[in-house]
Design a protein around this nucleic acid. Structure first.
Lengths: 209, 209
DNA sequence: CCAAATTGATTGACTTATCGATCAATTATG
DNA sequence: CATAATTGATCGATAAGTCAATCAATTTGG
């Protein structure tokens, strides 16, 4: 049947595309954005050079699809973490930070790819918009949670925006540390430093570790 | 005289090299690392294409010299700021943060270039080592100051390393925000968020803003 | 049920464009 | 005038994009 046919080849198509996206992440991680060649992606994915062009019209298309995939993965991971954490804003915030430093999200390879796109994003509106969108969604979610903590705890003197910006910046900065000094620094230490910060801002909610 | 001649031409040489380094920063800022061409650098510097090769044997040499220059500038700026701040560790720490968000250091263009080198650094040992060295010097300086504040204030329960890592990460993360969202976010806001953090860690020393 | 036909996937050699490097010719300088 | 600085055309290498040929899988017809 035509329907069965289409379903099968659509699956096949998605599998190949996924395979190529993962290969692209590996190659950018290994060789950097500027050093990534379609030939490298093809051999990493164990397919011939021509296949890349067959599934992604241009190199640009492949890179955009890779960024989009990473963004979707990242967003779905933190959203799921928040849902699982239940209603407590403290648990929700902890869940987001855990997600940010989970091996799936904060692997050396993926951090390297994020940095590559952030760096290139400055000159490519499509990268930039995608990153800005992601950033906004995340920022908004953290801010909502921070506001809940402030309200529930009666800490009306605390500026939710400022705390949100600080959490955000610390997370991104820790990622840079992980990228520059992967030996002297690990994900657990990063998380603990952020917990320390939250412990100072919300002493009652985030206990002294 | 040979000596006089040499002195003059050495000056000339330095001027040209400086001119080319500045042009390189502009072009990386405008077009990204991957999009930077020697022809662009030459025309930005208002010299002919051949001059680039005359003063820097290869493109690689030019890029390394650019990174080295940026690193030297950054280091000298914060060192000078610390010296000027006098003996008080609180004033010294404020001076470093001011320096980190001064227009000279944290311009959009230069932040973009830093991000470009951090991203590429993963695959190029020379970039990586240079960045790691810079990072270590800075980290050590901040840590020394933080330890002084802890000692003078008798805050023996505070972990200097953790605070240092947090300050560092917040700074780098704010830079990323400046790069991704230059409109919604500015250097003053970034500084205030860091001040807020310091106010929570050292309430007596960093007054509530 | 088997063979021919059709469709779609895959291959890698070829074309074209781009860019870094080179260098012979030209100009400026002391 | 001699030396140094500068120019930009030319060359070679590399990589993206293209495409005709091949191969595999599925469908159709006898």
């Amino acid at each position: 049947m035509a329907n069965a046919e289409k379903a099968v080849s659509a699956d096949r198509r998605d599998v190949r595309r996924q395979q190529l996206i993962e290969a692209t992440i590996s190659v950018i991680g290994r060789k950097g954005y500027a050093g990534t060649r379609l030939a490298d992606v093809a051999s990493q994915a164990k397919v011939s050079y021509g296949v890349v062009g067959f599934y992604f019209r241009t190199k640009e298309d492949l890179l955009l699809a890779t960024l989009q995939w990473l963004a979707d993965e990242y967003t779905s991971v933190w959203r799921e973490a928040v849902e699982k954490a239940g209603p407590s804003p403290v648990a929700r915030l902890r869940a987001i930070i855990d997600a940010d430093f989970s091996p799936r999200i904060a692997s050396e390879k993926k951090i390297a790819v994020w940095y590559a796109f952030w760096a290139e994003g400055r000159t490519r509106p499509k990268y930039r918009n995608l990153c800005a969108q992601l950033y906004n969604d995340y920022h908004w979610q953290v801010r909502t949670i921070v506001e809940e903590i402030i309200e529930q705890g009666g800490h009306e003197d605390i500026d939710a925006h400022q705390v949100t910006v600080a959490i955000n910046a610390m997370t991104d900065g820790m990622w840079l540390d992980l990228q520059i000094q992967p030996r002297d620094f690990d994900r657990e230490e990063a998380k603990k430093a952020i917990e320390m910060f939250l412990g100072k801002v919300f002493p009652a909610e985030f206990g002294n570790s």
